[in-house]
Structure formats: structure tokens, C-alpha cells
Design a protein around this nucleic acid. Structure first.
Lengths: 203, 203
DNA sequence: GTCTATATCCAGATAGAC
DNA sequence: GTCTATCTGGATATAGAC
């Protein structure tokens, strides 16, 4: 019965997805240790045991989420890096796109918050720490690089490019956290104040 | 023996302080549910049971920390509100003072982070939620008010005062989180980019 | 006031039926 | 593949000695 093997594989993937999506929201709201397997099971309408059929432990779910979060983040960074845009346009584009994604894609939003939170936590699996250590710098480097180039061209304000990159990601984290907390009901802040950090007036 | 009663009272206060300080750091790094009473006991060099002599539960410690955190925050807000400064000077002053405190006072810094984290969490005691609900808006209102007045005087950029206040506190949270994570080893970002959100060049 | 020992409970993870 | 029942460990909180 080759047909059913294929179908099973599909179910398997769908189940894993459901667990990951449900756990993501719970981890963001309650943290790793604050989330019980029972919570994940309830949220995904599965039994306790079934969750363990797809993941060998709660931590494994967490690690997988962190892995995917960085995978997407790094991918987006690379796309941004290689885009054919002037640096100052690129920065504005990055802000706008990230804000748009955060507002329209709850899942992507939660991934941002997960990374932000995980980076400040001590009691997460070693594997997750390794992933964070290995990937954390990349987004900062990309933004720092773009800003530096813009500064050489005088289209981005002078000042420490690293600091500007820090505030860039801090803004993104803040928007994501805000959106994750208040959801659609929240009025999303306008981004003009952020532009002013990077660009002269009239840009 | 009235002398020893007095002395005991002093010990009691000192012990409570030690527990609160130790727990604060642990809660920030590991979250409420990620922090075990044993961790608190170890960090404060007390026995497990002694901690329970001063606080009836882990959650009570947490609630007390949230209470103190807001108490200080609100106090600082009121002081700022009633200061005799032009609005735009006041905003710059607030940014500078908050940044300075965060950099030089690890404890104050952790209080900022605790509030920021707690506000996004679901699995905290009801009492803590109430405290957050009751106090959360105040700091935003204060900053929004100052900005509005500055905008009327044309010394602060136009735009949604609420949004500017949002970015204000997001910046503070980001600086505090950064400082709490990397401590003294971290290079603290320069604040010029932040000023640009609020003030025209040449201010 | 402080400690050790322990009761109790709950969450993570497994086993085995269906 | 899915469920229920259960084992096991560890964490909260308490009791009682000093």
C-alpha cells in the first residue's frame, strides 16, 4: 500500500506543523518552562502522548522553533543584503517590510519575539544557546554594513553604524512584541520617528 | 530585651532585601516559572526553608518585586512631570537620566526589564496582572503629555505623540535589556539617534 | 531565626492497548 | 497513528529540631 505511506507522511508533517505553531504562541506568552506539554496538547487538540510521538521532548520543540526562526531571519537578511537598492532606500525598505510582516503575519511576528526573548534567557537548552550564539550577530552585521555604506554616500546620518543597527533591531523587536501582545486591536505606530533616526529631514 | 527585638527587625528587613534582590536577577534571566526556590536560596546563601520564613511563596516574591518596580517607576514619572523644564528639554533630560541610571544602577535596570517582561507574560499571579493593569499606562501618559506640549511649542517634531511615547519606552526597555544581558562589558549605544526621533537638527 | 527532613503534588516522559 | 494509564523525578511548601 504505497498510497497510505505517502498519506501518512503528509499527516506527519501536518501534525508537526500544528504542534510547532501552537507551541510557538505558548512559548512566547509563557516561556519555555512556563509552558506545559499539556498546554501544547490542548492547544493543538491532541493527546499528551501524541505530542511525544512527534517530538521527543518539550525542549526539542523549542530548539526546532529557534532553528526555524533563525533560518527565516538569516534568509531575509541575505535577500536584503543582495537587493539592488541604494543603502538609504534599503534601510527604509527594510523597516517598512519588517513592520508590514509583523502586522500582517502573526506567525512571523511571534518568531521575532521568540528570538528576542530567548536571547535574554538562561534556562534554555544548550542546543538553543548554540543556535543563538551562532546566528545572533548576522542580522546586526547586515544592517550595520548597509548603514555604513549609506553613511559613506552621505545619505544616512553619521554616527556609530553599530548603534544605529542596535536601535534598528530594537525597534523591530518592540513592534513585534507590541503586536504579539495586543494583536489586531492595537493601533500600529507610524514609522516616521524611526526614519528620523537614520535620515535627514526631507529625505 | 527590647534591644534584640529591634535588632531582629533589622535582620528581617535585610533578609527580605537580599531575597528580593537575588530573585529579581533570577526572574529576569529565567522567568518566574523558570526560577526555583532553590535557586533563590542558593543565590542568597540561605536555606530553602529560610526563604519561606520571609515569603510565603515564590509568587509573593514576584508580586512584591512588581509592586516595587512600579512604585519607583511612577515616582520617577511624577518627579519628571512636575519638573520645571521646557518640554523638549524634559524629554532629552528623561532620556539621558534613564540611560544613565540603566548603565550605572544594575538593580534599577533589572526592574525595568522585569516590568517589560512581565507585561508580555500570561502565567504570572493575578495580583501581578492587576498591578500591571493598574500602573502600565501611567509612564506612557506622562511622556505623551510632555511631547504634546512640546509639539504645541514647536520644539518637538510633529506626529502622533502616543507613537513617540511608544518608541520612547521601547528605547528604554531595549537599553535596559541590553545592559542586563551584557552588563559592563557592553558598549552602551550613543543616544544621538534617539534625539533625532524627537528633535529637529540643530536643537 | 535557621536548618534538615519530608509530605505532597504536578509535570515530563513512557508503555502498551486499540 | 492515537489514546489512556502510569512511572518517575523534581519542585513547592511544611514540620519540627536546634
Amino acid at each position: 500500500m504505497p498510497r497510505s505511506i505517502e498519506a501518512n507522511e503528509k499527516i506527519k508533517q501536518e501534525r508537526r506543523e500544528r504542534i510547532l505553531t501552537g507551541a510557538l504562541e505558548l512559548f512566547v506568552r509563557n516561556g519555555l518552562s512556563g509552558t506545559k506539554i499539556t498546554d501544547v496538547a490542548q492547544k493543538t487538540k491532541m493527546s499528551n502522548g501524541l505530542v511525544y510521538h512527534y517530538f521527543s521532548s518539550k525542549e526539542e520543540i523549542f530548539i526546532e522553533l529557534i532553528r526555524v526562526a533563525f533560518e527565516r531571519m538569516i534568509e531575509a537578511c541575505k535577500a536584503l543584503e543582495s537587493a539592488k537598492l541604494d543603502p538609504h532606500v534599503k534601510i527604509k525598505y527594510a523597516i517598512d517590510e519588517l513592520a508590514k510582516t509583523i502586522r500582517s503575519n502573526p506567525n512571523a511576528c511571534l518568531y521575532h519575539v521568540l528570538i528576542a526573548q530567548a536571547a535574554t534567557c538562561d534556562n534554555i537548552p544548550d542546543k538553543a544557546k548554540e543556535l543563538i550564539a551562532a546566528n545572533r550577530a548576522k542580522p546586526y552585521e547586515v544592517i550595520t554594513g548597509i548603514i555604513s555604506r549609506g553613511q559613506k554616500l552621505k545619505t544616512i546620518r553619521e554616527g556609530s553604524a553599530k548603534d544605529l543597527a542596535f536601535f534598528f533591531w530594537n525597534t523591530v523587536n518592540g513592534l513585534a512584541t507590541h503586536q504579539a501582545m495586543y494583536g489586531k486591536s492595537a493601533q500600529s505606530p507610524h514609522l516616521e520617528p524611526i526614519y528620523h533616526m537614520y535620515f535627514q529631514d526631507g529625505e
